[in-house]
Design a protein around this nucleic acid. Structure first.
Lengths: 205, 205
DNA sequence: AATGTTACCGACCAAATGGTTGGTCAAAAT
DNA sequence: ATTTTGACCAACCATTTGGTCGGTAACATT
């Protein structure tokens, strides 16, 4: 039963290195040999464990990308009552790690959506599922915020979710190139402004 | 002097077809042969007019992408006094053409920024210049809005610009895959909400 | 009419691509 | 102890890549 452990370990190593290179260089711009070289493994090893490059990447999506996004952007939403504070600190954390990451190439999910758009329907399906999952959880969080009296009841929850996802995807793209910390700060300030406009009106306290 | 005309015409045809394919399939995923096949031209013709694939794309950026963005997203900003209305209708128009475009693969500039990030510094420079140009014009428009009394004086113009660019980049990515018209509508609604929060406060009229 | 010049052709090249296949060797199952 | 399995190797394959180069024919210049 030791064989199985080794199999899992090797496959995992391949996936981690694979994601790293795919993220940095793009999927189509990274060859299987590139990944194998990094790991000192052979072509045979790769095709022994995976059917194809596409199959390999599908596994990466499920095992690594999905989990990462769930941990960073989805799970934290289920904490407190006040969704707006929740989302604020969630975005703040996510952007902060991006600021301090020397090798930041943008939002993993966003980058891949961009690369596979109209080029590979199968993979796009998987990526879109993650996006949808995020959307659903955001909508739920916002509705909870309404229910708990933090967000104005007239606000469209789905609209807020789409707007927030857009803004996040965009800022992660823009942050990469110039003055990330600066752009993060400005972004967060304006997001708070936006949140003010959808908060429960205290009717001129 | 007829030769020169022909040269220009051929080069232009190549660039138009090139941009079309690069946009649809990605730069690294589109071969020069793909472009040449479409035009029934030969390798020799290509390398007679351009030094390399990169040089070719640089020309495309300057001649086609830059101009397009200037026309659609920058020039319209210089119209009226009220920047917020201006920006709203500008985004509205830009997103509307995306909605009605059968073959929409997202925001051209955004897609390429994504693809070249950390992979080709020279091209990234050119793309970033365009982004910067857009940013500068947005900031100017917002400052004008403050000056003309439409926008609250305490608002950070640079912050608004970054936030708007982010949101636009993001919505263009998200719109591609599912229900673009729907997402556009929701996005625009929330953008108007955001604009309310930075408008001049009428101090409880 | 003779002589450049220029737009374009298409065969060719080395390197790299995703994928296949026959084989080796250690561990598991019998 | 023998057989079977499974992880991995490495040479190999067809195809595609960006790019080169010698040539040709129409045009422009003299």
């Amino acid at each position: 039963m030791d064989k199985n452990l080794k199999r899992m370990a090797t496959m995992h190593r391949m996936q981690v290195t694979g994601l790293d290179l795919f993220y940095r260089n793009g999927y189509y711009n990274t060859s299987i040999d590139d990944i194998l070289k990094e790991l000192s493994l052979s072509k045979g090893a790769f095709y022994h464990h995976f059917d194809s490059k596409e199959d390999f990447f599908t596994e990466i999506i499920q095992n690594l990308i999905m989990r990462k996004i769930y941990t960073v952007l989805i799970e934290p939403l289920e904490g407190q009552d006040n969704s707006l504070d929740m989302i604020t600190s969630c975005f703040d954390n996510a952007l902060e790690t991006a600021v301090h990451n020397e090798l930041d190439y943008g939002f993993v999910l966003g980058n891949f959506i961009n690369e596979f758009n109209g080029r590979n329907a199968v993979i796009m399906k998987h990526l879109n599922d993650i996006l949808k999952l995020w959307e659903v959880h955001l909508v739920t969080a916002i509705q909870r915020g309404k229910h708990n009296g933090y967000i104005d009841r007239h606000v469209e929850s789905e609209g807020v979710a789409v707007f927030l996802m857009s803004a996040y995807l965009g800022i992660r793209t823009i942050m990469v190139q110039s003055s990330p910390a600066n752009r993060k700060y400005r972004f967060m300030s304006q997001m708070r402004m936006y949140f003010k406009s959808i908060q429960t009106k205290q009717a001129a306290v």
